[in-house]
Amino acid sequence: MNPFTKRFMQNKTIVVCGIILALIALAAMFAPLIAPHDPTEMFQENRLESSSSNFLFGTDQFGRDLLSRIIYGARVSLIVGISSVLISVVFGTIFGLVAGYFGRWLDSVIMRCMDILFAFPEILLALAIVAALGPGTWNTILAIGIVNIPIFTRTVRGAVLSVKNLEYVESARAIGAKTGRILFLEIFPNVTAPLLVQGSLAISGAILTESALSFLGLGIQPPDPSWGGMISEARRYMELAPGMIVWPSVAMTITILAFNLFGDAIRDILDPRHRGK
């Protein structure tokens, strides 16, 4: 085991959060095998029930099994969280690398564009994008992804600026390496750490943004269960069937908590001197 991996494995937070996240991911992947019922099947006679042996977490207003919906919800929420962050990471990295490495007018143009996106109120921007594209899972992902691009661009650009004049980059340039090679082989590896940290935090942010869009009626489309959508739907039944809001909230809290703690812990390991940045 190399020392790096060792430090990972010794960190209790990382191990625990890693296990939790892995379990959630597994549950999401194998949802059809684990879930006791079809998440959209309506048991007419069992509406708004509390826990029972058949419905461990109870049922919702249609008589759908909450446990199954939460398991399938993991799928939707993780897909939304991870895919939208991937979009932000890809574009953020490209923009950030280009802006940071080439500097000058490219830098100003890109960064001004990012400032524009950044100054746009987040929820409203996502809402407007979804409204323009039409509702649906991929459009929601796209909207959340676009909203987060500026943060990643800034993160990457900052990292690039801090290494681009270091000796090894200079020497790569000196031996005539191609720009693309320098960017991706010499510089990019240095921005992976901040990207990883920022990414794990952004995933939880994305899951929350999706829930806000659901609250405004433009998140994931029913009957697909997303945790945010379930919570926003459950508000109407808070007093009739508290389980409807409690269980998805618990699932969401655990997941977001795990992502955040995971991100923090990685930051502490990779960059112990700059815990705050």
Binding site: S204, L208, S211, A212, F215, G228, I231, S232, R235, M238, E239, I245, S249, M252, T253, I256, L257, N260, L261
Partner: peptide, 26 residues
Amino acid sequence: VRLFAMLGISVPNFAIGTLLLLGLSL
């Protein structure tokens, strides 16, 4: 303290707000 603080960002704020409104009125 850290766990406590993070709970705050893990539950959508519309759920917290609704709970407060309904609970206080009830």
